[in-house]
Every structure is written in structure tokens, then in C-alpha cells.
Design a protein around this nucleic acid. Structure first.
Lengths: 133, 133
DNA sequence: CTTAAACTATACCAAATGGGTAAACAATTA
DNA sequence: TAATTGTTTACCCATTTGGTATAGTTTAAG
């Protein structure tokens, strides 16, 4: 039960870009400053772009910049961009996954759904403007 | 980011035992009723025993029963018994794990710590008496 | 006091996931 | 048109996950 390394790298990249303001920063700079393996970072970034969190520019002088105000980027946004939606239990998303095919009123399922919703909302309550010094 | 299958099986086993009251129930009965692979269930149960959630009896007529009131067994208890403590990010538990060895005042770390604490508390707010019909 | 029923401990295994690297490609600018 | 920088895709190895098998230990019944 944890956030994976890729998401953690995503946090660092977004935070670095937030600190950089509107400047376009190349991957290598982010990788070095945030101690993220460069090639791995390059693989992660497109997920952040597809999610509308980051924009990129190719070619000489290219790099990455935030696509929107850091205030509008939450921890959950980054996690979901990289790992997809959170599901405390697979049964909460994959209908028919549960081997018991439990009664639709499975109370544990309902409890987990409630807890997951709170977790989502907690992860959404922190935005990257909060993290700037 | 999810609770693993073993914990889900653990939920089912504990719920089944809670419904059985004080009766000693053999593994096969639990496995069949809760649709859990018998051998896998047998591997999981010792974790619940070590955590003081379940007690076992060997030999003829043996089986499992809850070791304490269902009201005193929470979702978190079962998860921690089976998966160990929850850590949203490894850096929250393994000191010195973070490749950045970030400043001790990493704001993201602090946010995740807060969120994790809320998650723990939410998972603790449901006990297995709540789940009985 | 032996046998059968039940849990325990270990070891093993295949498939999926996680973390990371490599190489060829596409775009952009000087 | 060449150099720079991101994109795409494929590959790779180690770990984890979910599960099975096997040998062993405890206990109650006969």
C-alpha cells in the first residue's frame, strides 16, 4: 500500500518546475537537481503532459514547464497522472473482480469506498503552491 | 496504491469468524464460504494469530476463532497484521530511503505524513462489529 | 498408544509489477 | 542542415504477489 517511486519522482519534477516559475527547464536540469535518473524521468514526463500538468518544448532550448498554476495542481493530480486512479481494493474499480462476487451490499466494500474517497480528498487538499518556500 | 489480495482474504476470514461468534471454525469452512484458496488462507492465518486477532486450535475438531471482540478489530488491524504498517511513501518509514536525501523539512514528506495519519485513522474507524448484519 | 484430523513452517513456482536502460525517431532552432 | 532536446517503444532484471506442495506438529478420539 504505497505510492510508487515514479509518482515520487513526479512530485519532485512538478515541484522543481513550480519553483522555476514560467521558465522552460530541460530534463537534465530537473534530473540532476532532484536526483532522478534522467532516462526514467524522460519516461515519466509524458504522463504529466497528457494530464495537462506540464507542457513541453522540443528542440534547442526546449524543456518542460508547468502547464497551469501550481495552485491548481494537487498531489492527487500527479499520482493519478502517473499511476492512474487510486483504488484501495481492486474491487472498488474492477467490477466483478471479487472472487466472492459478494452481495452488492458488501459492507466492507462500502467502508473501503468511503475511506478511499476521503483519501482522494485529502490528497487533493494539498497543491504545489503550498510546497513553495 | 492498493490493499493486496491477502489483506482482502484476511477481511473475509475475520468477518466470517465474527459471524460465527465464539465457535471454532476449520480453515476449509472459511475457505469454501469466503471463496479463498484454502492453502493460501492457511498461509495467511498465522499473521492474524501473531497480531492477536485470531486464535487457533490444532488437531481433531480444531480450527480458528476470533481472539477478541469484533468491536476491537479494525480494518487497519487486519491490514497491518498481514502487510505490515502502511506507508504512503517509503520515505515515511525507511529513514534515508529518499534518493534526494531531501532537507528534513521536505514539505511534501510532511503532507504525505499527515495524509497517511488520516488514512490510518480512517481505516481504524471501522471495526468488524460494524460489518455484521 | 495409535491414528486421523487439523494447523504450522518452509520451500517452491509462475506471473505480474516496478524501476530502470537503450535506441531509433521527431521536432525545433540556430 | 546539424545539433539539441523531447517522444516512443522495446527491452531487461529484480522483487513482489498470489498460489501450491510437502513435511512436520499438535490434539482428540478410539
Amino acid at each position: 500500500m504505497n505510492i510508487n517511486q515514479a509518482s515520487d519522482y513526479g512530485f519532485r519534477a512538478v515541484l522543481y518546475l513550480a519553483q522555476a516559475g514560467t521558465k522552460v527547464v530541460e530534463a537534465q536540469t530537473i534530473a540532476q537537481n532532484e536526483v532522478v535518473p534522467m532516462r526514467y524521468l524522460l519516461k515519466i514526463m509524458p504522463s504529466l503532459i497528457k494530464a495537462g500538468i506540464v507542457r513541453s518544448q522540443r528542440g534547442v532550448g526546449g524543456g518542460y514547464a508547468l502547464a497551469r498554476d501550481p495552485r491548481d495542481i494537487t498531489l492527487l493530480d500527479v499520482i493519478e497522472a502517473i499511476e492512474g486512479p487510486i483504488r484501495l481494493n481492486r474491487c472498488l474499480l474492477d467490477e466483478g473482480y471479487c472472487s466472492k462476487q459478494g452481495p452488492p451490499d458488501c459492507k466492507i466494500h462500502q467502508a473501503l469506498a468511503d475511506i478511499q474517497q476521503k483519501l482522494d480528498s485529502d490528497l487533493s487538499s494539498y497543491n504545489f503552491a503550498d510546497f513553495l518556500e
